[in-house]
Design a protein around this nucleic acid. Structure first.
Lengths: 153, 153
DNA sequence: CGTTGTTAGTTACAAAACCAACTAATATGT
DNA sequence: ACATATTAGTTGGTTTTGTAACTAACAACG
């Protein structure tokens, strides 16, 4: 119906397609894949994505400072700062200042936080499995590898 | 960085890794791949990502209504509404109401808009090529295919 | 020492995204 | 016909993010 321009739908005027533009494709795939999982941790724990990321890092890699989370998760320090405050308010983590350098404080999950992490990690694994259900082992391996490379992880 | 498998004291090691969690991986890759391109259209045209998406759809697929953009780009109507207003203010598109149903209006790029699209599309193709530089043809094909599937495009 | 610089983290304010309510035009059902 | 529902799109108020300035603790060097 909308054909008042010179680009007829379905016909290529150039080869710059959706499927040919990787950033677009990656964003759509990322959004699609995050949607249901996000609904889960938002609904069950009232967490934002930033909070889930921080919880994830502490749960998976152990206690560390906010700075370390910034570096590992590539989040800006203000984002981390606010996420940490929110998680602390939810009693999911505690802060303990260093004695030899009081600028730092180690962030560690409480048992409540670990419980939430365990739940979300299990759920996450399930989401992941469902997502990869119709890929072969080899395809899955290649996909992950490619993404790690693009993400420069 | 160290990919050492360490667990917090008293906790069990699990296999829920960064590299094993697809939504996380996709988000990181998407962010990484969008960064430099975003800087380009933001710097040169003062566009937001939403505006670029709308411009992209109109430039690539021809004139259409806001609703069609919502559906194709999976953007919420408020986002599209505001992006359209911004692009109109920049003289990148015009609106023409339908005569038989005045709820609709066809959005079409102006020559200025088409010029911006041509520039950004060319730039985008380059970004894409650079991104895929160290993948084989076969890997690239597989990656795109997998992303299309995950994104349900 | 003290001046300057650097690092970790917070806060304040502006930009953008999100959600819900709204208008206006058309479709539908009785 | 007329009340009700639906559809396209906008607007308002709140939440979340982004940017920059800020504090506090330490480091480095004169």
């Amino acid at each position: 119906m909308p054909k008042k321009d010179e680009a007829p739908p379905g016909e290529t005027v150039d080869d710059f397609d959706l499927r040919g533009f990787l950033p677009y494709l990656l964003n759509m795939a990322a959004e699609e894949s995050s949607a249901s999982f996000q609904r889960y941790y938002k609904g069950k724990y009232g967490m934002l994505r930033t909070e889930w990321r921080v919880l994830f890092h502490l749960g998976r890699y152990g206690a560390m400072t906010a700075k370390e989370i910034c570096d590992r998760a590539r989040m800006h320090k203000t984002k981390v700062s606010r996420a940490v405050a929110a998680l602390q308010a939810k009693r999911f983590l505690t802060r303990s200042p260093w004695e030899d350098d009081r600028r730092h404080e180690t962030l560690a999950l409480t048992s409540q936080g670990r419980q939430a992490y365990a739940d979300l990690a299990a759920q996450g694994k399930q989401f992941d499995r469902a997502l990869m259900a119709d890929f072969s082992q080899e395809e899955a391996r290649l996909l992950r590898q490619a993404l790690v490379r693009i993400a420069k992880l």
